Computed example of a mutant assay.
Amino acid sequence: MTLRNLTTDQSTLLEFKDQILDSHNVFASNWSITSSVCHWVGISCSARHGRVSVLDLSHMGLEGTIAPHLGNLSFLVSLNLSGNNFHGYLPKELAKLRRLKLLDQSYNAFDGDIPLWFGALHKIKYLILSNNNFTGTIPLTLANMSNLETLDLGAQFGSRKNSIRDR
């Protein structure tokens, strides 16, 4: 069962890779079906479930959009894509990442409204969206994030940093 599920994680990540311009060839020799997804650059798997639990591709010079398929990484607890050149919107399928505790999308070029679906991520402790091009208001649904400790919206809203401590 775990092998089949890990194959699902692998397929998901390969779909994600297909939407990325990798000018530094980070994935060239590493993200392939010839090695276990748990040994890929930027990936960690949980010892308990043997599934992808961390996706950390921060500061790797990557460019592109976020594939909706990332919502299939059901054991993901940390998603860090900060310091790249991702753009467009954050797909609503990411709301399926119910175990997510850290979401860092800072220093990219995301735009549009801050998604309402963030409120569905009840386990989030750290939501870091600073230095993007989001517009609009801060959604009230963020109040549903009962475990939220840090909300960083930084420069996108006039160099304001908001921090929410344990309630």
Rank of each mutant, 00 (worst) to 15 (best):
V77L: 08
S130E: 14
I164V: 14
L57I: 07
G119E: 12
N108R: 03
D111P: 03
R51H: 04
V37W: 01
K92Q: 14
N85P: 04
G42Q: 03
R99F: 12
L103W: 05
C45T: 07
L55H: 02
G61M: 04
F134S: 02
N80S: 13
F134V: 05
G42V: 02
L70V: 11
E149K: 06
I114P: 06
G61D: 02
M60G: 03
H87F: 15
L121D: 04
N72A: 08
I128N: 05
S163M: 14
L21I: 14
N144F: 06
N30M: 00
S106H: 10
S32R: 05
K92H: 15
K161Q: 13
C38N: 01
G50H: 14
E149I: 10
D104E: 09
S74T: 14
T34E: 14
P91E: 15
S32P: 02
K92G: 10
N131E: 08
S35T: 13
S44I: 09
P115L: 11
L151N: 02
N162K: 10
L21K: 13
S130A: 15
N132Q: 09
S159G: 08
T65H: 06
L21T: 13
D22H: 00
E63V: 09
A155H: 11
S32A: 01
N25L: 12
K125W: 09
R51E: 00
L76E: 01
G158A: 09
H122D: 08
R51T: 00
L142Q: 02
L81E: 03
Y126V: 06
N85G: 11
V52G: 01
C38I: 01
L21F: 13
R165I: 15
G83C: 12
H87I: 07
C38K: 02
G71R: 06
P91L: 14
S36V: 00
